[in-house]
Design a protein around this nucleic acid. Structure first.
Lengths: 207, 207, 207, 207
DNA sequence: GATGAATGAGCATTCATTCAT
DNA sequence: AATGAATGAATGCTCATTCAT
């Protein structure tokens, strides 16, 4: 029993991993279930046993990425006492997570947006989650008087959008460069944008 | 014949307008050529007489939007002598242009990403054009000593990404709000992000 | 499963048989995959499961006919010890094979040649195979001194062409006659053409 | 008037010449009227002014070739008094005519078969004309006692078929060789096939 | 659990033909 | 005579999904 359940779980994982790879390489719409099945070394029927539809696989991958990012970001923020350091940590963790999962990043930032009207609302939610995470933290920091008051709702979106664009161009580039090299500039851009002008050298890259 | 040429041009326009409407409503992939033809009140063959493929129609629409945005932005910047006011003018013009062309904005920011790998490179170019426009202007402003030195390449992308995200969430919302209401906050966010901390109230919304 | 394999094979056969009938009746180009599917009592997708393309079905039929003819011709020749009798046997077997498979004959001699540039090279090969079979045998017979030396390469083609023409006109005729009735005349024509002038039943080397 | 008529005739000719070139290069079915129009440096409507349909152009070309061949063959035969020399002259003229008009030969022997059932009856007629020409002459020669009695109907077809096959393989070859080099062997094959065994050297290739 | 086979709606594209100008 | 524009039926092929075994 235990064994069979474990086998089923690992099968599911293998299908998701294979689907991720194919989606990232061919695009969501251009990926056929046959290709996913072949990549997962199973049959089409086998895939359908574990997932009810192609959409469902895609959504599962989206959730995996969203959870990965949110979890890591929140953990990193929790680990830092200083308000500004929290931003810093979250940004770095996100850059590094994307950098380490290029196909997933592609799915998340490129394919998911264009996968059709069915996914738009889900993407809106996911974007809102991230922007909201930033927004709430900005609210705290404003409350603490660390930064001047600002429209944290827009700032949250803009913050997320700035990161998005940098990662997206990296994801779409034919020959990927090192994403992390852009972190310092992006960090300064984002901190300044919310009114944090730190004396140079005061902030260090954590970890 | 002057008349025939004019008719041909207007037919082309009508097809593009109809295609825009359908693409925005149904998504690029879910749009059938039949729907475009029907919306343009012509036949499928008629559409193919004016455009060689579905892709070509989409690319033509993309270029229309890109040219519209770039033209307006550059004109607005040229009309302002003050360096900071140039940014301001460009940002406002872009927000207003998107606000006034929601379907085109949707195509530009959402559908283009899901239209398949063929479009990715084209999108990359378009994004690079905008980011480059900002980057070049930032370089000038840095050279003038108006703002401190910074990585203008990343800043250009981030600037564009921040705008993108605000517009994208507006585009995807079920019930569109007034996009322009976010302009002041976005403006402050972006100016600060490149080191311009103006005393509040000094800058007014032009025009 | 033995059963499933058998079913799959028989399905394939049924599709080929149906396709043969439709191709022969309507011509290769005018045959729609839908018609083949309908004739095979399956769906278009079903046909595509067994064959990757319309071309592939056609080529499979071509190979079937080529193998049938070559196999029978070679078997008939092997069964006869006398050199001249070998020719005789091969010719008779080919006439009879065509006579018994009129649709296949039509495909082979009419449709295949005109099915488009893609098939030309394949047809060239098939024609060369047959002409070569005759050519090689003529070479042997020449070597044995049974017939005088001659350009066996051209003779092989001409032999095959003569047979072709007789069968082709039979195939294209509205009301088919009995093809085999032409065998004796064709036989005499071909034997004489390579220098075999037989007075009643007696074989001698001319010249 | 004279001028306009002449212009119209030459236009017609130009269309036929262009169509021949395109048909031979792309095949009948794969040739679009657009291509013919472009090759003839006119518009689609212009082509339709001179010919009512694509079929009509093809048939006109077929007739052109048939008339060319028949005319030349009959003239050559008329010019020779000797019965056997008549055959010889006809064969040589046909080989030379095909050799000098490869695209037309392709149309005549290859494309016409794939042009669809509509053309089959016409082709049958054309083949019958040629075979009949030979058959009638064979009848005469038999009547003169030059050759022994034989089934001249089948012999006519076989004669034409042998020539066909040699020309067809030449037409389909990627790199065309010199068709005429096969004439002597073909000549001997055909003469022998009807019972003419001439001492070698007696017959020379005419002019 | 898994698979091969089948389904059938859907779609981009082609193209001979027509016709107003 | 000629043209550009338009038509619309036709077609090969794809693919998510279903299901008997």
């Amino acid at each position: 029993m235990r064994t069979e359940q474990a086998r089923s779980v690992s099968r599911r994982q293998k299908i998701m991993d294979s689907a991720l790879e194919v989606f990232a390489r061919r695009g969501y719409r251009d990926t056929a279930m046959d290709e996913i099945a072949a990549a997962a070394e199973t049959s089409k029927g086998g895939v359908y046993f574990h997932f009810p539809s192609k959409q469902a696989i895609f959504l599962a991958l989206l959730d995996r990425m969203a959870n990965l990012l949110q979890g890591r970001a929140e953990a990193a923020m929790a680990a830092e006492p200083d308000p500004v350091a929290k931003f810093d940590a979250a940004l770095l963790v996100m850059v590094r997570t994307f950098a380490g999962h290029r196909p997933l990043a592609r799915l998340f930032l490129v394919e998911a947006l264009g996968a059709g009207p069915d996914f738009n609302q889900r993407m809106l939610e996911i974007h809102a989650d991230f922007a909201g995470l930033i927004e709430r933290h900005l609210d705290e920091v404003v409350a603490l008087g660390v930064i001047p008051p600002l429209d944290t709702h827009v700032a949250g979106k803009a913050w997320f959008g700035a990161l998005n664009e940098v990662v997206t161009t990296w994801v779409l580039a034919e020959e990927p460069t090192d994403l992390e090299q852009h972190y310092p500039a992006l960090r300064m851009f984002l901190l300044r944008s919310v009114g944090i002008n730190e004396p140079s050298g005061l902030w260090r890259v954590p970890g």
